[in-house]
Each structure stands twice: as structure tokens, then as C-alpha cells.
Amino acid sequence: MKLPNIITALRICFIPLVVLMFYLPVENNLYYTAGIFALAAWTDWLDGFLARKLNQTTAFGAFLDPVADKLMVAVSLGLLIESHASLLMTIPALIIIGREIVISALREWMAELGKRASIAVSMIGKAKTTLQMLAIFILLTQAPDTQIAWAGMAVLYVSVILTIWSMVQYLKAAWPDLKSGM
């Protein structure tokens, strides 16, 4: 197993630690939770950097990396839905999670057609992921209804706009194949 893939797998291992720290009744648990999340988010950049730098890109890594990201984001958003217990948090979280399911299914279908490259990750998708990670980090550090939490919500809503925009781009790119498969 190559180092970038080990780092990606490590990101998945951070997920239970985020959940555990979130619920542990210790002082400053939200900061520790956000710190673990930030470390995991940083590994998303690191594994890609190392894969390219060391010329260790693999099909397994290309599969596992987005899975790790989606798991980390979905689990963290689930924690935030519970802690905020608010429609303002639930709606963007469900849009993000729903989009990830749709695009994952689309990528799988396009791969079966041998056209996965036609829906490769775009710069909007990378910006979306970066803003989602930033928003989640901010929101994990704060109890609901603080000024910083509201700033995190603003970043989350911007990420939702990019989430929808990137989904539309992917669907447009795949539309000819979707249409012919109906």
C-alpha cells in the first residue's frame, strides 16, 4: 500500500475519533473535535500532494479519497444537525449529503460506461470541498447561536451554493449519456 493511500485510510480512522471527542464530557471538547477534524481535512490535501509528488497515484486512491471526504463531511454534518437542532443547519447539511450521494452514483454509472473522465473533479468542486471543511471546522468549535457559529453558517451556505452549482455542472456534462440511457 502506498503512502498516499495510507494517509487517506487514516482520514477514515479519524472519523470515529471526531464523534467520540464530540460526545466526551470534557472541557473544550468542541475545540478538540474541531482539531481532529482539521487534521483529517489536512490529510485530504496531503495525500493528493504526495500522490502527485511521489508519482504514486492509484485507481484505489482515486476511489478511496472522495469516499473518505464524503464520510468525514457527512458524519460531521450529522453531529452539527444534532447539536444545532435547527432547520437552518439541517437544510444545508441535507443538501450537501444528498448532492454527494447523487454525484457518487453518477460517477459510478459513468464509470460503467467508460466515461468517468467526463465528470472529473472541477475547480468549483474543490472550492466547494474547501468551504465545506472550513464551515464544518468553524461550526464544530462553537455552541450554536454564537457570532462565530453564525459566521460558520454563512460559510456553509456559500458552500451550499457551490455544492448545487457543481452538481449542475456534473449533470450537464453527463446529460447526453443520461438522456441516451433513459
Results as ranks from 00 to 15, higher is better:
102 V>T: 01
102 V>K: 05
102 V>P: 00
104 S>G: 06
106 L>P: 04
107 R>I: 05
107 R>G: 01
108 E>D: 01
109 W>A: 01
109 W>F: 05
109 W>H: 03
109 W>G: 04
110 M>F: 05
111 A>T: 05
111 A>C: 01
111 A>S: 12
112 E>M: 02
113 L>C: 00
114 G>I: 03
114 G>K: 01
114 G>R: 02
114 G>L: 01
114 G>M: 00
115 K>S: 02
115 K>I: 01
115 K>Y: 03
115 K>F: 00
116 R>W: 00
116 R>L: 07
116 R>K: 14
118 S>M: 09
118 S>R: 08
119 I>N: 06
119 I>V: 13
120 A>E: 14
120 A>C: 05
120 A>V: 14
120 A>M: 02
121 V>G: 02
121 V>R: 02
123 M>Q: 05
123 M>W: 13
123 M>H: 11
123 M>N: 08
123 M>D: 07
124 I>V: 12
124 I>E: 12
124 I>G: 07
125 G>N: 08
125 G>L: 03
126 K>V: 08
127 A>V: 09
127 A>D: 04
128 K>M: 04
128 K>G: 07
129 T>G: 02
130 T>Y: 08
130 T>A: 15
130 T>C: 09
130 T>I: 11
132 Q>N: 05
133 M>T: 00
133 M>V: 00
135 A>I: 04
135 A>T: 05
135 A>S: 13
135 A>L: 04
135 A>M: 06
136 I>A: 02
136 I>K: 04
137 F>A: 05
137 F>E: 02
137 F>Q: 03
138 I>K: 09
138 I>L: 14
139 L>V: 07
140 L>N: 09
140 L>G: 07
141 T>M: 12
141 T>H: 03
141 T>L: 06
141 T>Q: 10
142 Q>K: 12
142 Q>G: 10
143 A>S: 11
143 A>F: 06
144 P>D: 12
145 D>K: 13
147 Q>S: 14
147 Q>W: 08
148 I>S: 15
148 I>Y: 12
148 I>K: 14
148 I>L: 15
149 A>E: 14
149 A>G: 11
149 A>L: 03
150 W>H: 15
151 A>S: 13
151 A>K: 09
151 A>H: 09
152 G>N: 14
153 M>R: 15
153 M>F: 13
153 M>A: 13
154 A>S: 15
154 A>K: 12
155 V>H: 10
155 V>A: 13
156 L>F: 08
156 L>A: 11
156 L>I: 08
157 Y>G: 08
157 Y>P: 09
157 Y>M: 12
157 Y>L: 13
158 V>N: 06
158 V>E: 06
158 V>C: 13
159 S>K: 14
159 S>N: 11
